[in-house]
């Protein structure tokens, strides 16, 4: 009995963790490069959820029926448009603040978050929205009677597989392309990289675009899986993804994925065995705890203060 629950929660935790990891990438890359918390990143995810539903409805109206084709097209369209949102956000709210006071970018990011939430609320309404289920079916493992089984839906499998593919592509891009190298150089030392001819503004834009598209992948997949969303979903998931990024070591890409998985598993097991009502409290307490006791996270290097 409890074995089945445990395995089921581990499965759910892995799925949740992949989602957190995908969003955490955006936090961790932006923090690594310009040292700010992009508070509006969770709302980028929310934008992606709305875009997914809108593109799905539009493509269905155009007469496309085959689910795989729909999924692929919606995913690509959402990624493209969300990336555009990420890029514009950086241009409007963060780029003018490169040399401003310490608090300015963060306050601007909070403003951006309010703008995105209210923009969607005003244009799409405050009520919760949904999409039809595209991916049906599931597999059952360890079946041992009518109530004793572990169920994995195809949508969950799709989430994990896509997350793995997405992260691998991103990792390959960072490690092997010229732009990826420039990114790493800017992360090490922005001024030096600029002196050596790296276009840092472009690198920063690219990082926002990549972070937003990863959040878009997460938004699209979750929308396909759960189907329901509103204009405020970005807030909680944003804090949790940020927790994942900190847990893994902010600035570290593998750390973001690892942190996501750890957080997803911990949260899912907590809600399976302790209490569902307090799972958000648990996640936030984890964030506070990690920041206090191990601010450099699992894979991050301890920071040496620059005097």
């Amino acid at each position: 009995m409890s074995f089945h629950i445990l395995v089921q929660q581990v499965v759910n935790g892995l799925v949740l963790g992949s989602v957190y990891g995908l969003i955490a990438v955006g936090y961790t890359m932006v923090y690594g490069i310009i040292g700010m918390i992009n508070f509006a990143h969770g709302d980028v995810y929310m934008i992606a959820a709305y875009l997914t539903a809108i593109f799905l409805a539009a493509l269905t109206l155009l007469g496309i029926q085959s689910p795989p084709l729909l999924i692929l097209l919606v995913l690509l369209l959402t990624m493209a448009f969300t990336a555009l949102y990420g890029w514009s956000m950086e241009r409007i709210a963060y780029k003018p603040l490169r040399h401003s006071t310490r608090l300015a970018p963060l306050i601007s990011a909070i403003g951006m978050s309010l703008i995105l939430q209210n923009y969607v609320r005003l244009s799409q309404g405050a009520r919760s929205q949904g999409t039809p289920t595209l991916i049906q079916g599931s597999v059952r493992l360890f079946e041992n009677g009518p109530d004793q089984f572990v169920q994995i839906t195809y949508a969950q499998i799709l989430i994990v597989v896509t997350a793995v593919i997405g992260m691998s592509l991103l990792w390959y891009w960072i490690q092997s392309t010229a732009m990826g190298r420039a990114c790493r150089a800017v992360q090490q030392d922005r001024i030096m990289a600029a002196l050596l001819g790296v276009d840092t503004d472009r690198v920063i834009s690219v990082v926002f675009v990549l972070g937003a598209s990863m959040a878009a992948v997460a938004g699209t997949l979750v929308t396909f899986n759960y189907g329901s969303f509103d204009f405020f979903i970005g807030f909680v998931i944003g804090i949790k993804a940020f927790t994942a990024a900190v847990l893994g070591g902010i600035g570290s890409l593998p750390g973001a994925m690892l942190g996501g998985l750890v957080l997803g598993l911990a949260e899912s097991i907590f809600s399976g065995f302790v209490n569902t009502d307090y799972k958000d409290v648990f996640a936030f307490s984890l964030l506070v705890g990690v920041l206090i006791f191990r601010p450099s996270g699992l894979l991050g290097r301890p920071e040496v203060e620059k005097v």
């Binding site: 306050i107 909070i110 403003g111 309010l114 209210n118 005003l122």
Partner: peptide, 8 residues
């Protein structure tokens, strides 16, 4: 919306 714009 206005608060957000004002902050930015």
């Amino acid at each position: 919306l206005l608060f957000g714009c004002a902050m930015v």
